[in-house]
Amino acid sequence: MSSHVERHHPTKPPITVGTGKSRFIEGLVQTAIEKDPRVAWFSLAILAAAIGKSKVDGSTAHTVSRIRQADLIAIDDIGQLTIGEDAAEAFYRVVDAACGSPLATGMEF
């Protein structure tokens, strides 16, 4: 588990239902916390709610910037359900900021 934390690049657990993805993320986050980095851990629904709330008061850039300051960003429950535009936008904004370069998409946000 610690090798995933030390590599500093995106890690994607298996996609199949019931393979322990959430447990894997839990272990990854716990290992990272023990090594003392900053961790941001969300379900996709919670991330969408945070970005949605920030759109209301105009603080989306600030919210994404605060999330981006984390050494590890874990987003769980991706692909569990069909997501709406707000969740897709939230996921896009965080991934775009974390990758450090603009991502191409046909969606308008």
Results as ranks from 00 to 15, higher is better:
A74P: 02
F24G: 05
S54F: 08
E89K: 09
R38Q: 11
G58Y: 08
R7A: 12
A74I: 04
A74Y: 00
L28E: 03
R93L: 11
I73A: 03
T16N: 13
P14C: 03
R66F: 06
V56R: 12
K35G: 14
G18P: 07
T82D: 13
A74N: 01
K55A: 10
R23T: 12
K55R: 15
P37K: 00
T16A: 14
R93A: 08
T60R: 04
Y92T: 09
A87N: 04
A50M: 07
H8Y: 15
H9W: 12
L47K: 06
S54A: 15
E34I: 10
A87C: 08
V64R: 03
K12S: 15
D71T: 12
K35V: 11
V64T: 03
A90Y: 01
R7W: 12
I83C: 05
H62Q: 15
I15V: 14
A88D: 14
V39L: 02
P10L: 09
G20Q: 10
K21F: 02
V56W: 06
T19Y: 13
P13K: 08
P10G: 11
Q69S: 13
I75P: 00
A87S: 12
K35P: 01
D86Y: 06
H9G: 11
G20A: 11
S43E: 08
I83K: 02
D77F: 03
I25S: 08
I15A: 14
V39H: 02
T19L: 15
A97C: 06
A32N: 06
R68Q: 13
